[in-house]
Amino acid sequence: MTRPPTAAQRRVIDDADPVTGRLRGTDAQLAALVKRGLAFRHPRPPHDHFLTPAGHRIRQAEPASADCAEAVARPSPAGVFSARTGGAEEAAADDSAARGREVHSAWQGLLELRRMTNPDGAVDRPCGWERAHLVRAAALALEAAGHRPAGPAADGYRVRETPQPEAVAVYAPDAEFLRGCALTLERAGWQAGECTEPRTRVRYLLASPRRA
């Protein structure tokens, strides 16, 4: 591709689902993106269109795409799904059935993204999007499995960045909770091992996406 997408095409790309990359637009817009290698039409009904890796790169190359990606991890007044990483800065935990459905839908969308973007179509191994958004991806795996996030009204898991490449730290209120988080992440395709902070002696998980 030598020419950048048009403004209309750019809007369609920026409005793609932040987890699955599913696109919404006119038939002409979607067909143009397919022709340029930025989207593909799913072979099974309802034949939705999704961003290709090249399309994801286009979205991530601009500030607008960063805003869209942030919507996956942080609360949004527009009601965009937010992966809960655990912390006082997040809204009080919502244990409603609606939240459960949102989490389930987001996790299923992430599995579909794995199937579409992993070279072998594997769904038991994290994909490129997860490696680029480690904290959000780990938090979604934990919440989708039923673990509660820490927050103003609850003591639960906290997922944090680490200086190590492709690794996050997961904290939990007790050893049993921590072991449960480790098992969940391993089932979701991550490697997780318990570590101890040298100064505080606090136990935590060091987790990274499995490659094979």
Rank of each mutant, 00 (worst) to 15 (best):
R115C: 05
L111S: 08
D95Y: 10
A212F: 08
A71C: 07
G79D: 10
T196H: 07
A150G: 15
P43S: 07
A71Y: 01
G109Y: 01
V202R: 13
C68M: 13
A98T: 14
P4D: 07
F50D: 01
T85F: 09
P43H: 10
M116G: 04
C195V: 13
T196W: 06
A145E: 01
P209E: 03
A139C: 08
L185Y: 00
Y204L: 14
D48P: 00
E197R: 15
R199F: 06
L38E: 08
T162I: 06
A132V: 03
R187W: 04
F50N: 05
A61D: 13
A97L: 13
S82I: 08
T52W: 02
R201N: 12
R10G: 04
V103A: 04
R179C: 00
R22M: 13
R3Q: 15
S105W: 07
R158G: 04
R131F: 10
R99E: 11
A138Y: 01
G86T: 03
R74P: 00
A132N: 11
R11D: 06
C68F: 02
L111F: 09
A54M: 02
Q108T: 09
Q29E: 12
T200K: 10
E90A: 07
P18A: 08
P53Y: 07
G121W: 05
R99D: 12
P126W: 05
G109F: 08
P165F: 04
P75L: 04
R41V: 05
P126F: 08
L178N: 01
Y157G: 02
A8C: 04
Y204R: 06
L205G: 00
R36N: 10
Y204D: 09
R44L: 11
D120M: 04
D15I: 00
R3K: 14
A28D: 12
G25H: 10
A31G: 14
G189W: 00
H56P: 00
A137W: 03
A141H: 02
K35C: 11
A192G: 01
S82W: 07
T85K: 15
Y171V: 02
A32S: 15
G21R: 02
Q191E: 12
V135P: 00
P53C: 07
D155V: 14
A93Q: 12
C127Q: 12
D48W: 11
R136S: 15
P53V: 07
T26E: 13
W129P: 06
G146I: 02
R115I: 10
H147F: 13
L142E: 02
R179S: 03
D174N: 11
R179K: 06
S105R: 15
G151L: 09
S208N: 05
R211F: 03
P46K: 12
P4K: 07
R74W: 12
R99Q: 10
